[in-house]
Nucleic acid binder design. Structure first.
Length: 418
RNA sequence: CGGGGCGUAGUAUACCGGUAGUACGCUUGCUUUGGGAGCAAGUAGACCGAGUCCGAUUCUCGGCGCCCCGACCA
């Protein structure tokens, strides 16, 4: 992408109504646009980041047997009444609307009910189980107070997976696989070392649900970490008998603020029994399907990455998340040889399938460097009179600042082996 | 939802009961060109409604919007 054609612009100051690092940097760098409180648009760079996150999650979900679907955002009150989750006193984040004939509809805040009902049509025998379905879907939640930039909005993109199993053992086995898949996601997203499997309340047919909590002062949650064991417990779980059952000691736990980047539940036969989602077992007996759900908020994950991986100058994207792999910066000062050389380099990278942002704008070096720091692409390639006469291209790492002069013939090797 | 704060050019801000100033941006020209350049000339603004007043961007009330703290987060 030629930066001269990119419609977004960077800005020096953040809007005064944004106080979080994630929203300030993402807006300044042109990744997102605020539509209203708790509602953000993703612009070209931001959309590419979301797509990269989506790709990682998709690969990990497919790897454990997930089948991708896309359910509607409009939801039928019937099924929610069946599980007693339609009433505002039970679920207080509903956006509800009406058809022209005055009957009610919901804008989905989650998809357990529709997913379970849909699956009922396709599961009738124990031979049809287990099955796993997931989607990337826009959720609507009428939060009383939106906050934390893109990390707690009223409309957001979520990956939600649902498991349908024959029995508790089968659910447990998949649940463990899901935990590993989630760890892979957060590892690839660059925040694995700060993200802890956290024991929380809320499992209906198990002692716990699990959250994936990323250590961060900007987080809304508070957890207690056992670094040795690599696990954490939620604030609400700090009771002696619980700690004992987890094999952790109160004294070794370190309190920290954190961001909930993922959450997984074992529901057992809640929902499925209420919705009549059953299968015939080996004896021909009707049994309720054993159910689990697994969520990751993509925008929140993006926000968490920015909160953790940024410095005074801007964002420092991990390789797999970055909107582009390389950022070519031409410092020409009108020198045609430099422009030709930068154009050639851009073509070369394109030919090798390396996603590149090419700053071909007619600006001074300082402004280009500042923009590049802010946008945060992992590798910067500088072409100038200086590098021309030195016979190469200056390669700079955004994360370490390490600078090396690389000849053009070696540049592809350098970029692809990193 | 309780409490608090704030709405002034595209952005960030200042002053004022007598119609608004600065910086950045943007436009044009010249100079400049490896860390957000310089000079010059332009461009562009009071959230909405009602009230008080000779006169309201300023004061009062209402609405709308935004932010923070708390509560909430199935």
């Amino acid at each position: 992408m030629r930066q001269s054609q990119l419609f977004t612009k960077t800005r020096k100051s953040a809007p005064k109504d944004e106080v979080t690092k994630n929203a300030q940097l993402l807006i300044r760098a042109g990744y997102i646009h605020k539509e209203m409180a708790g509602v953000y648009d993703y612009l070209p760079l931001g959309f590419r980041v979301i797509e990269n996150i989506r790709k990682i999650i998709r690969e990990e979900m497919n790897a454990i047997g997930g089948q991708e679907v896309s359910l509607s955002a409009l939801q039928d009150p019937e099924i929610w009444k069946a599980t007693d989750r339609w009433d505002d006193s039970k679920v207080d984040v509903w956006f509800k609307t009406k058809l022209k004939n005055d009957s009610e509809l919901g804008l989905g805040c989650t998809h357990e009910e529709p997913m379970a009902r849909m699956m009922q049509e396709h599961v009738s025998s124990y031979r049809d189980l287990p099955r796993y379905a997931y989607q990337f879907q826009t959720k609507f939640r009428n939060e009383l107070r939106a906050k934390s930039g893109i990390m707690r909005g009223r409309e957001f993109l979520m990956k939600d997976m649902y498991s349908f199993s024959r029995n508790q053992e089968e659910l447990d086995a998949f649940y463990d696989k899901a935990i590993q898949a989630y760890k892979n996601v957060f590892e690839r997203a660059g925040i694995g070392d700060k993200t802890y499997l956290t024991f929380a309340s809320g499992g209906m047919f198990s002692k716990f649900s699990h959250e994936f909590q990323t250590l961060c002062d900007a987080g809304e949650d508070r957890i207690f970490v056992d670094k040795e064991k690599g696990i954490a417990v939620n604030e609400g779980m700090m009771r002696d008998e619980i700690l004992k059952s987890l094999g952790v000691a109160r004294e070794t736990l370190v309190e920290s603020k954190s961001i909930e980047v993922g959450n997984i539940f074992k529901f057992g036969t809640r929902y499925t029994s209420e919705l009549g989602v059953t299968f015939k077992d080996e004896d021909g007996k009707d049994m309720p399907v054993v159910f689990g759900s697994y969520g990751i908020g993509l925008g929140r994950l993006m926000g968490a990455i920015v909160e953790l991986l940024s410095d005074a100058k801007g964002i420092v994207w991990p390789k797999e998340i970055a909107p582009y792999q390389a950022h070519i910066i031409a410092i020409s000062g009108g020198n045609k040889d430099v422009i030709t050389e930068a154009n050639n380099l851009y073509s070369l990278l394109k030919d090798h399938g390396i996603e590149t942002l090419y700053d071909d704008r007619d600006l001074r070096a300082g402004e280009k460097f500042a923009d590049s720091d802010l946008i945060g692409i992992p590798t910067r390639l500088i072409v100038s009179e200086k590098t021309l006469s030195a016979g190469g291209v200056e390669v700079v790492s955004r994360s370490s600042g390490a600078t090396t002069l690389v000849s053009e013939s070696a540049i592809i090797d350098v970029l692809t082996k990193e």
